[in-house]
Design a binder for these strands. Sequence first.
DNA 1: GTGTAATTGCAAATGAGTCGCAATTGCAGG
DNA 2: CCTGCAATTGCGACTCATTTGCAATTACAC
Lengths: 146, 146
Amino acid sequence: MKRDNDAELQFPDNIRRTKQREEVFRLLAAASGPMSAVDIYNQLLQSMTDGNFAMSTVYRVLAVFEEKGYVIKSAPSGSDMSYYEWCRGQHRHYAVCLKCHRMIPLKRCPFENAALDAAEDFTITGHKLELYGYCKGCSTKSNVYK
Amino acid sequence: MKRDNDAELQFPDNIRRTKQREEVFRLLAAASGPMSAVDIYNQLLQSMTDGNFAMSTVYRVLAVFEEKGYVIKSAPSGSDMSYYEWCRGQHRHYAVCLKCHRMIPLKRCPFENAALDAAEDFTITGHKLELYGYCKGCSTKSNVYK
DNA sequence: GTGTAATTGCAAATGAGTCGCAATTGCAGG
DNA sequence: CCTGCAATTGCGACTCATTTGCAATTACAC
């Protein structure tokens, strides 16, 4: 009965604890899928009746989490903003609904199993794949470019 | 010797011809990969010593091309802007360099051939896959949601 | 407790992309 | 070739997600 991404997520101990960061962590840990910064901000405004929360703080907290490798930032085409997800180990793919923009996690990575039956009840009309890494020039030279 | 995406690209005949559209078409047809609107704008400024070119025109021309299905718009994560590519038939995947952001076309679609050896001389450190389509709710209801 | 560096709130800046509007241009029909 | 009107363009102002400068606040080691 215990899902493997439920209650066992802990606030990372190599990151300075602040109320704001704990709140963002709490939301991301409880979320079923990626959230936008605005999503997070709005939910934060509701749950916090005391201190204020600045939008810029949300972005900065997310940036720290991402930099430390706890959060994955992604920007599905069709949406003009980024989505953030607490990283739970195994890499994930999503089926993005063209209409409501919901991101539905795939049951498994299609590269391991080409069946592509994706999530249940999802009509696939297209897909997008991007590989990341370094091209010949960039993998030999050091990190100079921009 | 004749590459299949070389000289045989024609300006579409179901689109009104203007100097600006022809120029954008010329650039995209000559490009080896996707270009950003800013790329296009800058190259246009150089090659055209006569009339002026507005950034908004570039966006509008690209929008028309995309709407008619001649151009594919994409936004690789890590870059905060969109890239446009003249559509040459078969769908394409790219290896995106994390450093210089160049988009290098894959020799074939990894879904057809899982080898994933990608372009030559490219070190893959990760990949991103997105499926597009409609979730259960959206595929049954009509197009109301935003 | 105290001090200091890290973090935050705020407000202003940025930058890609969009939009309204008046001036220009493509092109169908004479 | 000329005319007229709808489509297209240039311009500048605008939007909106995200970033940044700075002064005030806060976490946490000593």
